[in-house]
Write a protein that binds this DNA or RNA. Structure first.
Lengths: 205, 205
DNA sequence: AAACTGACTATTTAAACAAAATTATCAAAT
DNA sequence: ATTTGATAATTTTGTTTAAATAGTCAGTTT
């Protein structure tokens, strides 16, 4: 009965996985539907049976990654027992996510100006999850009396996430690029942890 | 004797001013050398007598703006009598600079990926001035005993400037652009001042 | 000699088109 | 319901040409 649906889901997953590998290694524009189909020994037409078009396939992969990211964040934040730990976990998970999928996001760097609405929705979803989870962490710390009650934890989290986003490589004169290069990511990570310390201290009594 | 040089400098200044107006209103690519020459009732060839090419002219204007910005920053920071005031002044001046010259920076948004080295040098120069001036402000505050001595004020300033850069409009889902739009600048400004407060408090005892 | 120009050349951009690559569709087969 | 080969539609790439603009230079003016 539901095995039909199961089978369909399994095939769908396989396509998503193959597509992910291609996108990760070669980026969106250098990946063809033929190649994805070839990797699975399927006809290209079948991909269109499961996904309406190439961009929807990419977005579906993206959505899956986002889901995993959020789930990961959720379980790690549950284990954190201080505000500092919670944010540090967020920074780490975010860092790993970017490092692991760096090439996958070629799509972003290329289309930069006009990303499809659906992508923005996924970004918003991730941001909202971060906002909700981290705001909760702030409220807990408030109740413990470690930090002074803030009128809007969401606002604070929003601000901190923005600030963390801003941290880039230090030598402006040497970077010459708007997007961080892969080799800079470690340096960025270190700086973010420092920012985090100062910021959280700024929230305390 | 030096009146010859003076005359030349005056003409050069006039060209810079006319070029600035054109670049400001129409952006780099929509401004022609003919138009700049026309505004001054000069021949285009004369522009090439004073400047080697169009991009060098643009860069010269840019350099002039940067110089004014730095001078402005320097005089304002001299008047500031707290770390908070100093940074607030920096944020304000930076904000006004961007708002006033928003269209001038079209060049940046278009060429984004590969800006000429000279531009990066100017950016680095600005950053270095900010670094030097604000680090001095930190050292003063240290001596006053208001904040705990930091091993490297430069590092702290660098971090804060990065963090301030990261502050963007809040509604990620609505923005849909990598570069902030003009209408968002006020919102960004407000958020930066809030970040500033928390950050500076995080530096204190 | 320094400042300047008109007329010229060189380069870049834009438009139009064709060819190739790739996306997307669909009738037919399993 | 799932899958495919053949085909259509679209996008990308490369080429040509014309127009716009950048850039040069011999020669004129101050």
């Amino acid at each position: 009965m539901s095995t039909v649906v199961d089978q369909q889901d399994i095939k769908r997953e396989k396509i998503l996985e193959a597509a992910y590998q291609r996108f990760l290694h070669y980026g969106y524009s250098k990946t063809t539907m033929n190649e994805i189909a070839g990797d699975l020994s399927l006809s290209k037409a079948l991909l269109y049976y499961y996904f309406p078009d190439k961009s929807q396939l990419y977005i579906a992969v993206m959505r899956k990654l986002a889901g995993e990211y959020i789930q990961n964040l959720e379980s790690e934040l549950n284990q954190a027992n201080s505000l500092r730990d919670a944010f540090a976990a967020q920074v780490d998970i975010h860092h790993n996510f970017i490092v692991k999928n760096y090439n996958f996001f070629d799509f972003f760097r290329v289309n930069e100006q006009n990303l499809p609405d659906t992508i923005w929705e996924i970004i918003a979803e991730i941001r909202n999850s971060e906002l909700t989870l981290l705001s909760a962490a702030i409220r807990i710390e408030e109740q413990k009396g470690h930090i002074k009650p803030v009128e809007s934890p969401e606002q604070i989290v929003d601000l901190l996430i923005d600030a963390l986003h801003g941290v880039r490589v230090s030598a402006v004169a040497h970077k010459k690029v708007m997007f961080p290069q892969k080799e800079h990511l470690e340096e960025i990570h270190t700086k973010r942890l420092l920012l985090l310390d100062i910021f959280i201290k700024g929230l305390m009594y």
